[in-house]
Design a protein around this nucleic acid. Sequence first.
DNA 1: ATGAATGCAAAGCGTTTGCATCTGG
DNA 2: CCAGATGCAAACGCTTTGCATTCAT
Lengths: 158, 158
Amino acid sequence: MSELSKEERDQRVAEALEEFYERLQEAGLKSTKQRDLIVERFFWLDKHISADELLEDVREYQPRIGYATVYRTLKLLTEQGFAVPKDFGDGQTRYDPILHQDPQHDHLICVDCRKIIEFNDDGLNERIQTIATAKGYAIRRKKIELYAECQDQECPNK
Amino acid sequence: MSELSKEERDQRVAEALEEFYERLQEAGLKSTKQRDLIVERFFWLDKHISADELLEDVREYQPRIGYATVYRTLKLLTEQGFAVPKDFGDGQTRYDPILHQDPQHDHLICVDCRKIIEFNDDGLNERIQTIATAKGYAIRRKKIELYAECQDQECPNK
DNA sequence: ATGAATGCAAAGCGTTTGCATCTGG
DNA sequence: CCAGATGCAAACGCTTTGCATTCAT
């Protein structure tokens, strides 16, 4: 994610947008100034974000956007598989953008400072597959959150 | 869980209750008819349960219990480490009782019928430990939810 | 008696919805 | 044109809180 160059990032956002507009068309839905902006910013920021935070961001470009529009767009993105809602227990839902090259990552959350580290572990993913298969299920998606405290003093809240 | 005999179950509930009352005393908090009932039923039922469902259950014994009391008791149980709140994305928080012999389990959720299967996998737990340790963190708790569809026709919603 | 717990109703908060208006295809 | 999208405000559902009353210690 953050190791990508601006070019690579632009590239991935562009691809995701293209895919998104294709789906819009297929579904007979419309592209509008507001929707386009929200979706583009959502992809561009490329991090788990709350409706509130996203609204604040897009209002820098179009101050009159209403929060209902943001919620509706996030719902649309979720339905179309471009976003995954996450709940970290602080009362508000956050949405993870899915730029399709990206395998869905998991989270390690510091219980002291609430810092959220994203990670991806093949061994973990394999194990999960094994478990689901053994029980006769096929994984559609997963939600893995590890709540932990860091060992040393890098964490401000200790 | 469900493989326990009634005796074993009673035993575990009794132990958990004892521990709970110890903590209450230490904290200078009181034991009341309502609180006792809610906690006992919560331990006895021994499954993830919403505030609503728990309220409905305890009202069979004491119809005048208010929902605020149930919420307050669940909050207390959570603070004292006897319950873990879980969010499965359907808008209401569910609480998992922790009877202390029980290692914390994970969930496999059918995306079609919303059936929730609890499981525990040592390989998975080891892998998680490894990941956290490698990143310099010590796990306090985890939340693992696998959303999957079942392979055959046992699932009513297909 | 005194601090804590309860029940009720009201408030909170994030999210969703109804509706009149606007807009893209 | 007309279905779909927007913005606003009101409604929603779950959860929390204020307050007068009751209760445990």
